[in-house]
Design a protein around this nucleic acid. Structure first.
Length: 190
DNA sequence: GCCTGGATTATC
DNA sequence: ATAATCCAGGCA
């Protein structure tokens, strides 16, 4: 078996709208558990009214201005950690939210406890991603958390839809910035 | 300091 | 439809 190696920093050093579709099919590796990404969302910077960096540099968003390829993990509703990958270009404060992934048979991961439990909160729970993982370098193979390229050759068939849960963001609520693998049952919603 | 609300989920 | 649960961000 080839050692699974992380995507390089340059992969992330571009707009989230480019990175988000490219991450579908890639594998999240967290402390020995592996999951194949099937759903992502792009948050495209300060002008995006659904993006946390709309507030500019703050204690929370500082990580988004750091190196592309850094993990941005935050707590939503006081309950669920959300996993993001910081994108660029440079310090453009873009990020991709990893919303759903599927169990990979024989890849060292365990099946999800509840196959019906989907969505970004359940993903972090299943993988063991927590707030302590905020600011981890996703490009470091020694990192407890990183993302590896697609195992399969073919690019997944993608569906493009508005993002989930951003109704407050006015015109940005309808932008087609969510990318799902077509027909995959692990996607949080059709 | 105080107040509001959220990139969600499970349950009624 | 709504509670759970807590912190970031805005404003005083």
């Amino acid at each position: 078996m080839q050692p699974v190696h992380p995507l390089p920093r340059k992969f992330y050093d571009r707009n989230a709208v480019q990175v988000a579709p490219a991450l579908v099919g890639c594998r999240v590796v967290c402390r020995g558990r592996v999951a194949r990404i099937v759903e992502t969302e792009a948050y495209v910077g300060e002008h995006d009214l659904a993006c946390h960096s709309r507030a500019g540099r703050t204690a929370r968003t500082e990580v988004m201005y750091g190196d592309p390829g850094t993990a941005y993990v935050y707590l939503i509703y006081g309950i669920h950690p959300m996993l993001n990958a910081v994108c660029g270009p440079g310090a453009a404060a873009n990020a991709v939210l990893i919303r759903a992934a599927e169990f990979v048979p024989g890849a060292g991961s365990e099946p999800w406890l509840h196959p019906s439990a989907r969505g970004p909160g359940n993903l972090t729970k299943a993988l063991g991603v927590g707030l302590r993982d905020n600011r981890l370098d996703l490009c470091d193979p020694a990192s407890a958390l990183f993302i590896a390229p697609r195992a399969e050759r073919a690019k997944p068939k993608l569906l493009r839809t508005p993002r989930i849960g951003v109704d407050y963001s006015g015109p940005w609520a309808t932008e087609l910035l969510r990318f799902c693998e077509a027909g995959n049952p692990a996607v949080s919603r059709p």
